[in-house]
Design a protein around this nucleic acid. Structure first.
Length: 532
RNA sequence: GACUCGGUAGCUCAGCUGGCAGAGCAUCUCCCUUUUAAGGAGAGGGUCUUGGGUUCGAAUCCCAACCGAGUCACCA
């Protein structure tokens, strides 16, 4: 319903029925006054922008007097009114540019309404405006637009937090409350410029990977998010229901089995940036939906994939930072190739002094006990080794390190090691004590794969609700034959955290999952109550 | 899931040994034609997260709930 059709009284009545703040009421009045003056506060026509704040700031040269007819649009972010003159900053997607507004140049005739009323009273911080004029430098040397024409592009009726930065770059009155920042990311993006930088870097990370894969001729695939069997990882899925088919469907926890089907189908290399969904706890490093890049390349093994991963990660660091040295907290991570490589058993020997090679399950159990690692009798050999590694070794790998050759029980989709059937051809890339990438020489023996799935089934029957389901169609695909293949998955969110010096996943997701706000939450409670 | 910290004006926060609800910025009125955390004078603005309790009296003390942050556990 356009505002124009309501009288001021009607608008005020509407206002009173909502609880609006003083400033929100003021802005609604200003909006109505603009309309009364015949100014459309939300014009339909395009605005002929011909320059950006960044271009002007970087390229303006006082001597050449370039940018003599610019047309810039953006959000009004600050204002300093000095009587009949004024300075304000406009922020567009590229940054901020100062504008100089002079009463008699905006209003060349006797009618000074545009300056005195529209600009000074009815416009405010947060409004979108367009300005035309020429660029000059002020007495203090600040590049500015000397405005001759001002256009209202969109009125804002909610006051924006006013964040100020002083001469020393110190931020005053910052919009810092994390809850508000995540719930109202649009505001966060407007007033906290560093936030946008994180997402620009995220984009660089993703583009660098994509370009790297495409340069190798690999194919970007799209595979189902809704899956009848949630495969490819051990995790609790979200479940949903398809009405027409009347079947349950699961949100994908991984896309691995689908990409391998494509290798069966004859692609040499396939990759996908996969949004995965896991119905598990949330914390600083876990969001219910997250992004993993998975790639599968035929006729390769995990040793090749290690080289490939190294090259890719180094490229990413260079693309984001222009350097292989990346600051993270109080550490400097070096992504310069080659990364250190150690076997899992080697790592355990290095950090505990115990060589587990050839040891029986009982012996390893006793060693774990002696090391004060929490273990129980139900754990198999592989699980015991994994526990010892996570407890005693993981944290030591701050600089990028490949951990190779995991126990076979932990890796039901991975090919057995060519030299030792108790191990698999698997590596993880550890950085700052956490897993960043995970890769295999993929298991392509359909009989072995069936047996591994059956072992998972036993685990499931034993009460492990995260053991993998048997995917018969995937086994059928393998039976047709899959070439030797190496696959690698890398947590994009965690990689971005690493590259942007963030310890919270929420900082690298535009819209991290949050509990619904009050209104929605009350409705949810009602529904819960109805169920009971 | 456990523990710790927090929720007060549009934003950032003070007030918390119980006694009229505060500051800066923002808003409104006035002055100011090169300012940049502009400046000067004045004014308005509050469901102190919610619900109980103690008390003559609660933003403040107690209990519970909600929301968030952090630490740990779980998960990967």
């Amino acid at each position: 319903m356009p505002m124009q059709h309501l009288s001021l009284r009607e608008i005020l009545r509407k206002i009173m029925s909502q609880h609006l703040s003083e400033q929100e009421i003021q802005r609604r009045k200003d909006l109505q006054e603009l309309i009364d003056l015949g100014i459309e506060p939300y014009p339909a026509a395009l605005y002929p922008v011909n320059a950006t704040a960044k271009e002007i700031n970087e390229q303006y040269n006082d001597e050449e007097k370039n940018f003599q007819e610019v047309c810039v649009a953006g959000r009004l972010m600050s204002r300093r009114i000095i009587g009949k003159a004024s300075f304000g900053e406009i922020m567009d997607a590229s940054g901020r540019i100062q504008c100089y507004f002079n009463r008699d140049e905006i209003c060349t005739g006797d009618d000074k309404t545009m300056y005195n009323t529209v600009y000074k009273k009815l416009l405010g911080i947060g409004d979108f405006i367009g300005v035309k004029g020429h660029v000059f430098k002020t007495q203090t040397g600040q590049t500015s637009i000397h405005v001759t024409e001002l256009t209202v592009l969109a009125k804002s009726i909610k006051p924006l937090p006013v964040v100020k930065v002083d001469e020393e770059g110190k931020v005053h009155d910052g919009f810092m409350n994390p809850e508000q920042r995540y719930r109202q990311r649009y505001v966060d993006l407007v007033v906290n410029p560093g936030v946008k930088d994180i997402f620009i870097k995220r984009n660089i990370v993703i583009n660098t990977m994509r370009e790297f894969f495409n340069a190798h001729g690999y194919f970007e695939a799209e595979t189902p998010v809704l899956q009848p069997i949630p495969g490819g990882a051990a995790a609790r899925p979200f479940i949903t229901h398809h009405n027409a088919l009347d079947i349950p469907l699961y949100m994908r926890i991984a896309n691995e089995l689908y990409l391998k089907r494509l290798i069966v189908g004859g692609f040499d290399g396939v990759y996908e940036f996969s949004r995965n969904f896991r119905n598990e706890g949330m914390d600083r490093t876990h969001n219910p939906e997250f992004t993993v890049m998975e790639i599968y390349v035929a006729y390769k093994d995990y040793l090749w994939m290690m080289d490939f991963t190294e090259e890719m990660v180094e490229k990413i660091a260079l693309a984001v930072h222009g350097s292989t040295e990346v600051k993270f907290g109080d550490k400097v991570l070096s992504f310069k190739r080659p990364f250190k490589r150690v076997t899992m058993l080697g790592a355990i020997e290095e950090h505990t002094g115990h060589n587990l090679a050839g040891k029986s399950e009982e012996e390893i159990y006793e060693i774990a006990k002696a090391l004060h690692v929490e273990v129980d009798k139900s754990m198999g050999k592989g699980k015991l080794i994994d526990e010892i590694f996570s407890e005693k070794c993981e944290k030591h790998y701050v600089q990028p390190t490949f951990i190779m050759d995991y126990p076979v029980e932990m890796s039901p989709l991975c090919k057995k090691h060519r030299n030792n059937p108790e191990l698999t051809e698997r590596f993880e890339l550890m950085v700052n004590g956490t897993e960043m990438a995970n890769a295999y020489s993929e298991l392509n023996d359909p009989i072995d794969q069936r047996e591994r799935f059956e072992e998972q089934l036993k685990l499931m029957e034993g009460g492990d609700d995260e053991a993998m389901f048997i995917d018969q169609d995937f086994l059928r695909a393998l039976e047709y034959g899959m070439p030797p293949t190496s696959g690698m998955g890398i947590g994009v969110d965690r990689l971005v955290m690493m590259m942007t010096n963030n310890t919270s996943i929420q900082e690298v997701l535009f819209f991290p999952q949050m509990r619904p706000e009050k209104v929605a939450e009350k409705e949810g409670e009602k529904k819960e109550a109805e169920k009971k």
